[in-house]
Simulated assay, not measured.
Amino acid sequence: MTSATDKKRQTVYPDMDPLLMVLLLVWSSGAHCETTAKADIVLLVDDSGSIGLQNYRLIRSFLARLVSVFNIGPDRVQIGLVQYNDDPKTEWHLNTHQTKYSLLMNTYNLPYKGGGTNTGRALDYILHKNFKSNVGMRADSQKIAVLITDGESQDDIFLPSQNLKDAGIEVYAIGD
């Protein structure tokens, strides 16, 4: 049975993915709700110099709220995280944190580095290093990349974005 709210959401946002809707709800309202979807999500976080330490603290807080929404586990949602500036660096893989607590503790402790903004290189990196079965990607899960950035890339993002899409990975960008 479909509720009136669900019908309204389907009318206003007919093509919106349910996981994206959860992400947007968390981001905009701060509400707490859990999802039991099976997904592999790689968060791609810009920690370039243009972010600044104060904004980076806000990003970490946002990431913690985002993580807290999901039912984390090997049969539910797995979250990997890559930070990037001039060069991307995997902070943790999809299969590293099996509990929400572990994931949250590591989210709060992410270091800020600074540097340039090579988003294209970072998108290519997650395709080849993070969306792989040997680091936790599951064949039967939804694959999602969430890019969090404050600005324009210093390199090309079109081809790396297309390669992710061609590999069946949904890419969502949250930016300034």
Score class of each variant (00 low, 15 high):
4 A>P: 07
8 K>A: 04
8 K>H: 07
8 K>I: 10
9 R>K: 08
10 Q>L: 10
11 T>A: 11
11 T>R: 12
13 Y>M: 12
15 D>V: 13
17 D>T: 09
18 P>H: 12
19 L>T: 14
21 M>N: 05
21 M>Q: 07
22 V>W: 01
22 V>C: 13
23 L>H: 11
24 L>W: 06
25 L>Q: 13
27 W>T: 01
27 W>I: 04
28 S>A: 09
28 S>F: 06
28 S>D: 15
31 A>I: 08
31 A>L: 04
36 T>A: 09
36 T>H: 02
36 T>M: 08
38 K>M: 10
39 A>H: 15
42 V>Q: 01
43 L>T: 00
44 L>F: 06
44 L>T: 02
44 L>D: 01
45 V>K: 09
45 V>N: 10
46 D>S: 04
47 D>Q: 10
48 S>T: 06
48 S>Y: 07
49 G>L: 00
53 L>W: 06
57 R>E: 12
57 R>F: 05
59 I>A: 09
61 S>A: 07
64 A>D: 02
64 A>T: 15
67 V>R: 00
67 V>S: 08
67 V>F: 02
68 S>P: 08
68 S>N: 15
68 S>A: 15
70 F>R: 03
70 F>L: 15
70 F>G: 07
71 N>T: 15
71 N>S: 15
72 I>Y: 01
74 P>I: 12
74 P>D: 13
75 D>L: 11
76 R>A: 05
76 R>P: 03
80 G>H: 11
82 V>T: 15
84 Y>L: 01
85 N>D: 06
87 D>E: 13
91 E>S: 12
96 T>F: 12
96 T>Y: 04
98 Q>W: 04
98 Q>H: 02
99 T>V: 05
103 L>R: 08
103 L>G: 00
106 N>Y: 07
106 N>L: 01
107 T>D: 03
108 Y>K: 13
109 N>Q: 11
110 L>A: 05
110 L>T: 14
111 P>G: 12
112 Y>M: 08
113 K>A: 06
115 G>M: 09
120 G>Q: 02
124 D>R: 03
125 Y>R: 03
126 I>D: 00
128 H>A: 14
129 K>I: 05
131 F>K: 04
133 S>M: 07
134 N>R: 12
137 M>V: 06
140 D>Q: 06
141 S>A: 14
141 S>D: 02
141 S>V: 01
141 S>C: 14
142 Q>N: 13
142 Q>F: 01
144 I>Y: 04
144 I>N: 11
145 A>Q: 08
146 V>F: 07
146 V>M: 06
146 V>K: 00
147 L>V: 13
147 L>W: 01
148 I>V: 14
148 I>Q: 00
149 T>I: 07
150 D>G: 13
151 G>R: 10
152 E>D: 10
157 I>A: 10
157 I>M: 04
158 F>K: 14
158 F>Q: 09
161 S>K: 11
161 S>E: 09
163 N>C: 10
165 K>E: 03
166 D>S: 10
168 G>L: 11
170 E>Q: 15
171 V>K: 01
173 A>S: 10
174 I>P: 03
174 I>T: 13
